[in-house]
Computed example of a mutant assay.
Amino acid sequence: MTPAVKKIIKAYFGKTEIDINGLIEIIEKTGNADVALEMLLGTYEQPEIPNESFISVHKCTFGSFDKWTNNVSYTYVGPEYDHIYINKDVDPKSLTPENYKEYQVRYDDPTRKLVWIMIKADAEQKQSCSLTEWMAGVDTLNGKAF
Rank of each mutant, 00 (worst) to 15 (best):
W68F: 12
W68K: 04
W68P: 02
T69N: 13
T69P: 03
T69K: 13
T69D: 13
T69H: 07
T69G: 12
N71F: 02
N71S: 06
N71R: 15
N71K: 15
N71D: 15
N71H: 14
N71G: 09
N71Q: 12
V72S: 07
V72K: 03
V72H: 01
V72N: 05
V72A: 06
V72L: 02
S73T: 05
S73A: 10
S73P: 06
S73G: 09
S73N: 12
S73C: 12
S73E: 06
Y74L: 06
Y74G: 02
Y74R: 03
Y74P: 04
T75D: 05
T75R: 09
T75H: 08
T75E: 11
T75M: 07
Y76V: 03
Y76D: 11
Y76K: 13
Y76N: 11
V77E: 05
V77T: 11
V77W: 01
V77F: 00
V77N: 03
G78R: 14
G78H: 10
G78M: 08
G78T: 15
G78Q: 12
P79G: 13
P79H: 09
E80Q: 15
E80Y: 14
E80M: 12
E80P: 10
E80N: 10
Y81G: 05
Y81P: 00
D82Y: 09
D82A: 08
D82H: 08
D82K: 14
D82Q: 12
D82N: 13
D82S: 11
H83L: 10
H83F: 14
H83Y: 15
H83Q: 13
I84C: 10
I84A: 13
I84E: 07
I84D: 02
Y85W: 11
I86R: 02
I86W: 00
I86E: 00
I86Y: 01
I86Q: 05
I86P: 00
N87A: 09
N87Y: 14
N87W: 04
K88N: 11
K88I: 08
K88Y: 13
K88G: 09
K88V: 02
D89P: 00
D89N: 15
D89F: 12
D89K: 11
D89C: 09
V90S: 06
V90E: 00
D91N: 08
D91G: 05
D91V: 03
D91M: 11
D91A: 08
D91T: 04
D91K: 00
P92H: 00
P92T: 14
P92G: 13
P92Y: 05
P92W: 01
P92V: 04
K93A: 03
K93P: 02
S94C: 08
S94R: 13
L95D: 01
T96Q: 07
T96P: 02
T96M: 07
T96D: 01
T96F: 07
P97A: 15
P97H: 04
P97V: 04
P97M: 05
P97L: 09
E98L: 10
E98Y: 11
E98K: 14
E98I: 11
E98R: 04
E98D: 08
E98S: 14
Y100D: 01
Y100I: 06
Y100P: 02
Y100A: 07
K101G: 05
K101W: 02
K101N: 10
K101I: 08
E102A: 12
E102Y: 10
E102R: 09
E102M: 06
E102L: 14
E102T: 08
E102Q: 11
